[in-house]
Design a protein around this nucleic acid. Structure first.
Lengths: 353, 353
DNA sequence: CACGGTTTGGCAACCGGTTGTCAGAGTGTG
DNA sequence: CACACTCTGACAACCGGTTGCCAAACCGTG
């Protein structure tokens, strides 16, 4: 047998390559040398255990443990084509809405042995597009949240690599949809029952599909109930926009507002307070998402609670289901997450005019 | 010349490899074939432009543009040893403190052409350790925030790969320190000037070095000023812990509290409100960090404002300075970020007993 | 004992780049 | 015109794995 020869030549090379005691990470070649087998056998022992003999595998596993071996993910990715990473694109990391989403994806990805590549696209469609192109090689799949890009671009991108969108309903592209439109109806009922007859919708960005969907749901619900709704905005989804939103709501003369999201709603609360307009006595405010802070702002915000973290997990599950079709897993290409209205202190009976 | 021969053989292989029109991403070999040069020449043209002739380079660049070439980062990493990625370890993604930090690192890394690998260690030292080991190959460097691991472990890890810590002062390990101890003195002055003589410190986790440093600063400042401070806790850095913190503060009979961080402080505000204890009339509360939400909670929180996002950027700069020593850049191994007290509504004159 | 089938392990090509080395071409000088 | 020197590009090894294919070894059976 050529065991000793192979072993010694390997260790010689090793000694020469790392003479200064710089214990560089072990490779399968080191293990192979130590066990007197070929590198390919080591590879198989670790990735296709059934392929090698029970005794050989044990020896290899022992050696691997001793050398504290960790596979080099770059090399693995290069040769196998799978990177073990999933890209997650969010428009704004500092938006609390995405915190929970990110945590959801992170947890689920880690559980499945994947790495999360988080990218903040800074609300820019260009960054979005270039990132997606870049990730095409760097990741096995991608999860994009409420992107700026058009349906056609998204569809084309989905054809090139596994993709799941969140809150973006494009036919042919797997999606997780947070069903705020339904909760919007609940919110309107809530306001109507409190005596409000004129309600404003503080719209999000024009390009936001979520905003359009909510407005559509709201206006049709309003029609059914015979109340008047008007659309104000657009407003950027940040607390700072709340000031302008509040002023425009006051000017419009409504007694209640449904904001595109909690950030705008919270900003409105601050502005209304500055102007001495009481919430909910003079004006009722409803937010959307129930983000961090919605429960402790002043007054606590009535809002539509979304299962955000869960949405992140579902998105990951859907994506992984596509990546590994064999592993079973529901192969649904669309998942709707229910939401509900959480009533807190920012809504109350309509002011008697 | 063998140009035509090489060219045709290449394109043949190419045609065979991708017959079904599956336009897989272009490689340097495709470019080489198209230009009739060797792959190595393409590599040099793109990474060491001076190394190839002006005209050849132009041809190659044109071909690369036409084929929409993007280098495969895995392959690049494998052969060059540099991954172009930096790991960022945070204990809890959903803690708003880290949002700003993450955004800071993300922005600075992207500007330098690096990718951010974000990992939530879930407040666990084991996850921290294993992640660091894993990242040793997957990243060029690592930024760890207020880790659980001991000084010795950190020092050992720092010897193995470039590392910068945030809010963790270990000799020999580059660090960005947010100087809350100084602001703690300011906070105490503020409270003392309002007539408070007994103040509680709501401590963070026992293993948190930040918490220890703050307590040390606070107790020595208290001694100088002749006021009494007591330490309560430890409390987990979450709003939920605020309830216990509030109750223990009330029980201790102090008139003012300085919390380890804003999450605890905000949780205390909620609990005190539930119990009918007025802030600041009956109890003053000071937070720490000035996170998202500190300005709109009820009442708005007096807190120590930290330049969190900036800290993230500085950490990245320090790390990159180590990775590319040639590029100049300050080679400091320790950076202290100033903080200041932001007075809002949660602090007021001491209750007259 | 011969034969077919199944394990089991090795060889070598390959993933897509980087980089050391070398040879041929081109340039300038004595 | 010969020689030294620089510029330019090709060749091939290498990074650390994966995987198709083949051959040796081993098995049981007729």
């Amino acid at each position: 047998m050529a065991i000793s020869a192979a072993g010694s030549s390997r260790s010689e090379r090793n000694a020469v390559a790392a003479p200064a005691g710089v214990n560089r990470p072990a490779t399968i070649h080191d293990i192979a040398a130590m066990c007197g087998v070929a590198a390919s056998t080591v590879s198989r022992a670790l990735s296709t255990p059934d392929r090698v003999n029970f005794r050989t595998r044990a020896r290899i596993e022992a050696a691997a443990a001793e050398l504290n071996y960790t596979p080099n993910s770059q090399a693995k990715a290069l040769s196998s084509g799978r990177t073990g990473a999933v890209g997650v694109l969010v428009p704004d990391i500092t938006n609390p809405f995405y915190f929970d989403l990110i945590r959801g994806t992170q947890l689920q990805l880690k559980a499945a042995g994947y790495t999360q590549l988080l990218v903040d696209t800074e609300e820019s469609d260009e960054v979005e597009a270039s990132t997606m192109e870049q990730l095409r090689k760097g990741a096995d799949g991608i999860i994009v949240t409420a992107p700026r890009l058009g349906d056609d671009v998204l569809l084309a991108a989905a054809a090139k690599m596994p993709m799941v969108t969140i809150n973006r309903d494009v036919p042919g592209v797997p999606a997780v949809i947070i069903d705020t439109p339904t909760a919007t109806g609940q919110a309107l009922d809530h306001l109507v029952s409190l005596g409000h007859t004129r309600v404003a919708f503080m719209a999000g960005p024009l390009t936001s599909q979520s905003s359009s969907r909510r407005w559509a749901a709201l206006s049709s619900a309003a029609e059914e109930r015979g109340v008047e709704v008007l659309r104000l905005g657009p407003f950027a989804p940040k607390t700072q926009s709340g000031a302008a939103a509040a002023d425009s709501a006051v000017h419009s003369g409504v007694t209640a507002c449904i904001a595109f999201n909690d950030l705008i709603a919270i900003g409105m609360l601050q502005r209304l307070r500055e102007r001495g307009i009481r919430v909910p006595e003079d004006m009722s405010i409803v937010g959307c998402d129930d983000i961090f802070g919605a429960d402790f702002c002043n007054p606590p915000l009535t809002t539509m609670t979304s299962p955000i973290e869960q949405a992140g997990r579902v998105a990951v599950s859907m994506l992984l289901g596509r990546l590994n079709p064999l592993a079973g897993g529901s192969n649904r290409s669309r998942s709707v997450m229910p939401t509900h209205l959480t009533v807190r202190g920012s809504t109350g009976p309509a002011r008697v005019v």
